[in-house]
Nucleic acid binder design. Structure first.
Lengths: 349, 349
DNA sequence: CAGGAAATTGAAAGCGCTTTGAAAATCGGG
DNA sequence: CCCGATTTTCAAAGCGCTTTCAATTTCCTG
């Protein structure tokens, strides 16, 4: 059933039917009712493509998800981010289009999106420290919002990010104040911007507490359970092992915990751990009292906010760039405690 | 740059340019070259909506992902499934459209997809035992492929599933043959078809080994690490605890392992575990020798196959239903061993 | 070199919708 | 009851592409 057929059924012109359905004021209430009833009865929905062609709007948002070519890995945070964004799109009648791409064809994909006009805007995921996408994006003529930030200047485009630097400085400082002097960082891939900022925050806090960074305590990997486990074992095998760990994801934190248990260490007593926590639906952090002390920053909420931001930008393309910096919440759980005795934290100061 | 402009630049008709770009034979090689060069130079891509309107094809596939309204949970297997499907779509020039929906608006969403014609076919996720979607899907006129099967008759529609029943029968049998008599099942939500079939396979194998099922050993939950942990602790607290466990997901298996460690049980010696393993990129099962004995069935591969199947159906809509039943591979790892002595397995038979 | 066949190009209609500009119907006031 | 103002409706153009059918050009053969 298309518009022509529907209007024939009603004995009205396409114009009137279209207007009635789209809420234009110049159609009488009586006919509007009739039209609405007929549309419902015949299960009429305007053809997306035709509508898009006529209005110049696709009513769709593109998400470009880089698939790390190294390990062909799909980050589970996308699932939650997209769930959040999807809520907003649904509410505003937008569809969500997903493109997965390796680094190779990335440029072509963005140009395609720009030229094919199948979406009204895009959300850019997983910005890297060195990333040539910014120029590209500014070149193709499509509104976009970045989840995170690119390395380099952070103005001139729309982004939504959490304050990775401050969060990790905060957590590191918290551990230092508990008397820990050897604090390890189990980070994500530091070619990713978020991981680089976390490292910077970590280093900044070490510096503020007069602790000198030790490269042996800083590792950077894809954030899997397995990597968290491996990294922790290696760290514990060090001649002078850390007494506290900082990890970039709940998933690696699971591996950290496993390694610690395996070595007979009790978390919060023998060793302390703070994890970043994206609040993924499949990895809730304990119940009332969280298992892990964590930096909480629900990625699903990021999805919602980024989507709202993009829709705003689409409605007003010439607005000055919007940015939103979210603070993570330091949530004290069971996995942190004062540095164990051998370090004699009481002696200091 | 659109087709009209491009053809004006070239001094050719739109017809010829369109034909040249789409590889029709009735255009001379010379002009084809010229057209291709100009298109490249001006970065021309046909407008998706216009092309779709003219051809009647959206060149897009819809994925409808139910969001479990109970806990607002997005299953991480979707990420990998979609990565697999996305590969195939990209290769064939299709886009991927995602819709997330709670059970409430499900029916309306499918009807929308059918009527709006914004996709050429859909992949249906997470079929339930009781599921009214089959009628709905047959009603709206769109090709579809189900990942999994609905409860009830399994013919008359296209699906791709793993042999859940046989896999779990196999694993249960394997444990029974190791002498285990108290085998617990930590299943996913048994309102889901896959989980119901797994339970059936488990029961079938128990029966074949003359073991009577014990409701206290069968639990059914959302498959999170936390639930796996909780369930295992509860099972171990039973007056007569299980000596072997079967779990429906690597993620819950992580929780199972944690609970076991916490109770000082060594996996493969004091207690055995077989996990289903979707081979998710963030939860690889150990290295050369897998940590867990597991039923391996890579969901990313399912995604690829389901996508290929759907494209085939779209090309030939009147074909008889295609179905594909994949067998999981039982992969022996370190988490299984003979039942511990107290049960005296040697006595039997 | 004529003439028909084959190869190549083009004009125009159509896909299903929105929207402009014009026409028809209705209304209110003298 | 008539006329201008206001509502309400409609015909037709246009969005950017494909495709049918017709026109033109090129080629080959006798």
């Amino acid at each position: 059933m298309n518009l022509r057929e529907l209007s024939q059924v009603l004995g009205l012109s396409q114009t009137t039917v279209s207007r009635a359905l789209n809420g234009y004021p110049e159609v009488s209430e009586a006919t509007r009712q009739k039209v609405a009833a007929a549309a419902r009865k015949h299960n009429y929905r305007p053809n997306t493509r035709a509508k898009g062609l006529a209005t110049g709007r696709a009513m769709a948002i593109g998400h470009v998800i880089p698939v790390s070519s190294q390990h062909e890995v799909v980050n589970p945070v996308f699932a939650d981010f997209i769930a959040g964004a999807g809520e907003i799109y649904a509410r505003h009648g937008y569809d969500m289009m997903l493109s997965l791409t390796g680094n190779r064809e990335e440029a072509r994909l963005y140009r395609d999106l720009g030229a094919k006009r199948s979406v009204d805007g895009i959300i850019v995921h997983a910005p890297r420290v060195e990333d040539d996408r910014l120029d590209l994006l500014q070149d193709i003529n499509l509104p976009f919002v970045v989840h995170g930030r690119f390395g380099g200047p952070t103005d001139g485009y729309n982004w939504l990010d959490m304050n990775n630097r401050r969060a990790f400085a905060r957590a590191t400082g918290f551990l230092a104040e508990l008397g820990h002097r050897r604090i390890a960082l189990i980070n994500g891939l530091e070619s990713m911007d978020f991981a680089a900022r976390r490292r910077d925050g970590y280093l900044e806090a070490l510096n503020n507490h007069a602790l000198s960074p030790d490269p042996a305590l800083m590792v950077s990997h894809e954030m899997t359970e397995f990597n968290g486990y491996d990294a922790t074992l290696a760290l514990l095998d060090l001649p002078c092992p850390p007494t506290a760990l900082l990890t970039s994801s709940m998933i690696s934190a699971l591996g950290v915990r496993r390694a610690c248990h395996e070595r007979g260490l009790v978390m919060g007593r023998d060793i302390s751990l703070i994890s970043h926590d994206d609040d993924l639906s499949y990895f809730r952090n304990g119940g009332r009292v969280p298992d892990f002390t964590s930096l909480r920053s629900p990625v699903r909420d990021h999805g919602r906010r980024a989507a709202e931001m993009l829709l705003r930008v689409i409605d007003d393309p010439d607005s000055t760039p919007i940015t939103e910096l979210l603070e993570a919440e330091l949530q004290i759980g069971l996995s942190t405690g004062p540095a164990p005795a051998p370090l004699r934290p009481a002696r200091q100061g």
